[in-house]
């Protein structure tokens, strides 16, 4: 098991958002977290990455607690996080954005960049363009590339398709599946497009009001009538 979130309570200040959440990700899996707005999906990812105050419970990575690790240490351990919005450095070029993803690496290994450009060919021709001048879909590719450049073992994606046109939504989700298949990276993803996300996921979790409501394989959740009615819009 690569990631284990155990009975986590977390939130901002005095306010708790997660009330005892447990989630697991196995090696090589795509796991989706779905649920209504404000259910604590994004907060779960942020808690794992140490961006939200963890008050109770534990986050284990390969069985070791990472509760106390700073984000740059987590990147060093092989975790990677793509935030939902503002996830590129607008005044840096595409290539510089990727370099920032490899900040902790002492050497600038060229093959890493080639790998990313192979994965996202449109970025290669835009490598000298400032990321702020890219389209939404291209920015998302830059954000993915930045997160993948250190060849992470676990990729955390916070609503990767938010704000994208339908055309790009499918493309990005297909890309996630492709990355998972080709690099073997495990993916924990929060997604608004619950049906599409569950369809491509090995397993899924349904959250509501900071608590886990359902957990099953992606397909089983899709077939679960209760889940479909309550959370997948019928």
């Amino acid at each position: 098991m690569i990631l284990q979130v155990k009975d986590v309570v977390s939130g901002y200040g005095d306010m708790d958002i997660l009330h005892g959440i447990s989630i697991e990700v196995n090696q090589g899996e795509i796991v989706s977290i779905v649920g209504p707005n404000g259910s604590g999906k994004s907060t779960t990812l942020k808690t794992i990455f140490g961006l939200v105050n963890l008050k109770q419970g534990e986050v284990l990575y390969y069985g070791d607690s990472i509760n106390q690790n700073t984000p740059d240490q987590l990147v060093g351990l092989g975790l990677s996080f793509v935030p939902q919005s503002d996830n590129v450095f607008p005044s840096l070029t595409v290539h510089e954005n990727l370099e920032m993803g490899a900040f902790i690496s002492k050497t600038n290994k060229k093959y890493r960049f080639d790998l990313i450009y192979d994965l996202f060919p449109p970025l290669k021709e835009k490598r000298k363009t400032q990321a702020g001048n890219l389209s939404g879909g291209q920015r998302q590719m830059v954000a993915f590339g930045r997160a993948l450049i250190m060849e992470p073992e676990l990729l955390l994606l916070d609503e990767p398709t938010a704000g994208l046109s339908p055309l790009y939504i499918d493309m990005i989700l297909e890309k996630v599946a492709e990355i998972n298949k080709e690099t073997g990276v495990s993916v924990l993803m929060v997604e608004q497009n619950a049906k599409k996300a569950l369809k491509m996921s090995d397993r899924g979790y349904v959250l509501a009001a900071g608590q886990k409501k359902y957990e099953d394989t992606g397909q089983a959740l899709l077939n679960n009538e209760e889940v479909a009615q309550l959370f997948l819009g019928g």
Binding site: F49, L51, P71, D72, L74, V75, G76, F81, P83, D86, N87, V88, F89, P90, S91, L92, M100, G101, F103, I104, R146, M150
Partner: peptide
Amino acid sequence: DNMDLAKVTGIN
């Protein structure tokens, strides 16, 4: 550009 993103990117 973005301090929060810099942190999650792994920049020290």
